[in-house]
């Protein structure tokens, strides 16, 4: 009898130390992306000439802004186990719509409003068709919209090509600086604060996490799952529209070929940043870290004159690593559950 008690106690301590190790491992995985980003920045500062020059850092911020904004919308969709492949084409279409409004004599506000509305309309179609068309996965409708929006943007653009000219307000937001900091950076901050409020302080955000964590349970708990899903695609569309404003402002133009492969960049940013593809795990910090990581990798390789094709290979490799880290994290959590049961 005493021997048995001793055995139980022993097993308890073993479980306790095992649990500690697993928890430590999970912590490390959580900090992984931040550590890697820090290492990247240190390596680039040391190894890449001109990397730390203020003008280059400003460039990184300006170039990263569009990816960051659209990635934050993508993050909300991925949080609900979805994906939005249409964001790049959506952004192009939004710039073209904005350009047409400008050519028709629209002012700054009208152009901005048109871009945001176009983005949200595309997002609404994504969400409505996904939910009410009873599609098995949003992959299909957003892939279709990727094609439709690009085609529509090319059809709508006069001469199927770039239109010069943007109102001052748009140029101010996307192309100018305040106290040496690109205004696009402040747009990123505003979008981030908005998402922060929605996800941490408001009921809607809690519901997106619940739907992502377990859609069946969410329905059983009385959450309007369909409405939540549709709203995340509208939100992603809105972010594409904001991205359109920033990109048009930076280039002073609108173009049906903007945003090519932006869907891949934004999905990569979210995953590299450490969010989970399995739903319910992730926050805007992941999208932002991932976007900056991609920006830094691109910028450093550019300064080193590494050709663009190698950049694509490098970013692809990082994505595979990030997804493996996600898988490892889930296995560690399962292990923690077992140890927790053994301990008590």
């Amino acid at each position: 009898m005493r021997e048995e008690a001793r055995q139980t106690a022993l097993r308890g301590t073993a479980a306790e130390s095992g649990l500690l190790a697993v928890t430590l491992g999970l912590r490390l995985l959580g900090f992984g992306p931040v550590l890697i980003l820090a290492l990247l920045i240190v390596a680039a500062s040391v190894g890449v000439p001109n990397f730390l020059k203020p003008i280059n850092l400003g460039n990184i911020l300006a170039q990263t802004a569009v990816i960051a904004i659209v990635a934050m919308g993508q993050q909300m969709v991925i949080l609900t186990r979805g994906i939005d492949l249409s964001v790049g084409s959506n952004l192009a279409l939004a710039t073209v719509v904005g350009g047409l409004v400008y050519q028709a004599g629209g002012g700054g506000l009208a152009v901005i409003f048109a871009m945001l509305a176009a983005g949200m309309a595309v997002g609404a179609i994504n969400g409505l068709v996904y939910v009410y068309g009873r599609l098995p996965h949003p992959f299909i409708i957003t892939l279709a919209m990727l094609s439709i929006c690009r085609g529509l943007a090319l059809e709508l653009a006069p001469g199927h090509t770039t239109m010069r000219g943007m109102p001052e307000a748009v140029k101010f937001l996307g192309g100018q600086t305040t106290l040496g900091v690109p205004n696009a950076f402040f747009v990123v901050v505003v979008v981030a604060l908005l998402i922060l409020m929605l996800t941490y302080a408001m009921v809607w955000g809690r519901w997106t996490y619940a739907v992502g964590g377990d859609p069946v349970a969410a329905r059983e708990m009385g959450i309007p799952v369909r409405g939540v899903l549709i709203s995340t695609y509208v939100f992603s569309g809105l972010c594409a529209g904001i991205g359109a404003v920033v990109l048009s402002g930076r280039t002073g133009a609108s173009s049906p070929i903007y945003g090519n492969l932006l869907e891949l960049d934004t999905i990569a940013a979210v995953i590299i940043g450490g969010a989970s593809f399995l739903g319910g795990r992730g926050h805007l910090g992941h999208a932002l870290i991932g976007a900056v990581m991609i920006g830094v990798i691109r910028n450093a390789l550019n300064l080193l004159n590494v050709d663009i094709y190698f950049q694509m290979i490098a970013i692809g490799g990082v994505i595979v690593l990030a997804v493996e880290a996600d898988v490892l994290r889930n296995r560690l959590e399962a292990r923690a559950r077992v140890l927790q049961a053994a301990k008590t």
């Binding site: 519901w207 964590g213 969410a218 709203s231």
Partner: peptide
């Protein structure tokens, strides 16, 4: 029907969150 990604308290109130102000539509309450 538990949400693995939420804490016990968040699980308790999931779908029935206590929020304010009451004049806002439910999803937009704090």
């Amino acid at each position: 029907a538990l949400f693995d990604n939420l804490t016990p308290a968040q699980n308790f109130y999931c779908g029935r969150e206590i929020g304010f102000p009451a004049w806002l539509p439910r999803p937009l309450r704090f």
